[in-house]
Each structure stands twice: as C-alpha cells, then as structure tokens.
C-alpha cells in the first residue's frame, strides 16, 4: 500500500461521533500502523500495551487486537457511530477552515429563551396524570 502524505502539526484523524470531520487538535503521537499524526483523543493502545493506533486503524484491527468495538456500548464516542450506522460510516469531509470559522462566529446558545421554557413547561401527560393506584 503506498504511503499517504500526512499533514504535519495537526491531528489527521477524521473520526467523530455523529459524523466524521477534521480534527483541530495538536498531534501527540503517530499511528503505529499508518503513521498518521494523531491527537490524544484519537489514540488507542493495542493489546500489546505498546503500539499506539489511530481510530481508523483501531476499527480495522477489530476487537481481538484492541478490545475496542466488540460490544455495542463502548465508552468511547468515536466507536458509537459506526456501531449504530453500520460499516458505511458517514464522511462529511468538512473543510477545516470553513466549518470552524463559521461555527466560531455565532453564539452556541441562540435557541431562544422561549424555546427552552416551552419545552420544560409542557406537561407530561402520561406521568402527571398517572392516577393509577399501583
């Protein structure tokens, strides 16, 4: 397999929880399999306790090698999505510059006050009116 050219000084892993996207963290290591620069969050350790793998290679190595991805519930957000969506994990290929600059411009909380009030105040019909004697 021809070696890919990795971009230096930035984590090159694209795995996310709900969709894949560029990672903006500093790399802490290189993947022991594909040599990709990876941040701490995107690093798992092979069963041998020494080799570090990126999220993509961890998924490919499977449960036997890494103990990851065997059960539906794995504490790691990067493995939830592929269990839920199956093998064809969605790749959005969000361009790093455009998506980050766009998301920084806005306040994260522009759901209006009214939105949140209406959600909470709305009565829970089932429970509020649970008049069963049991």
């Amino acid at each position: 397999m021809p070696k890919k050219e990795w971009q230096p000084d930035i984590c090159n892993e694209k795995a996310g929880f709900l969709f894949s996207h560029a990672c903006d963290r500093q790399p802490a290591a290189n993947c022991g399999n594909c040599d990709k620069p990876i941040c701490k969050k995107h690093t798992t350790r092979r069963r041998d306790g020494v080799t570090l793998l990126c999220t993509t290679c961890t998924k490919e190595a499977g449960a036997e090698d890494t103990g990851r991805g065997s059960s539906y519930y794995d504490d790691d957000p990067y493995y939830y999505g592929s269990h839920y969506y199956g093998d064809h994990y969605y790749d959005d290929r969000y361009d790093r510059r455009s998506s980050y600059s766009e998301s920084r411009r806005n306040d994260p909380r522009d759901f209006t006050e009214a939105d949140s009030e209406s959600l909470v105040a709305e009565a829970d019909g089932d429970f509020e009116n649970d008049m069963s004697e049991s």
Binding site: H21, S99, E102, S103, P108, D110, E128, E133
Partner: peptide, 30 residues
C-alpha cells in the same frame, strides 16, 4: 390528589447542555 393518595409533584430539570458542532448544528440536551 391521586385517588386516595396525597401527592406532591416535582419536576427537576437537572441537566442542560448546549453547544455547536463542527457542521454548524446547534444542539441542546436536557
């Protein structure tokens, strides 16, 4: 009252989490 019972109804919204994901989607979890 619930039947013969005296009842007190409590509603505790104990967690709220809001932010923006890299695709521009804003999320709220309660």
């Amino acid at each position: 009252k619930v039947g013969h019972w005296n009842a007190e109804f409590y509603v505790d919204q104990w967690l709220q989490l809001e932010g923006r994901l890299v695709d521009g989607t804003k999320f709220t979890i309660r």
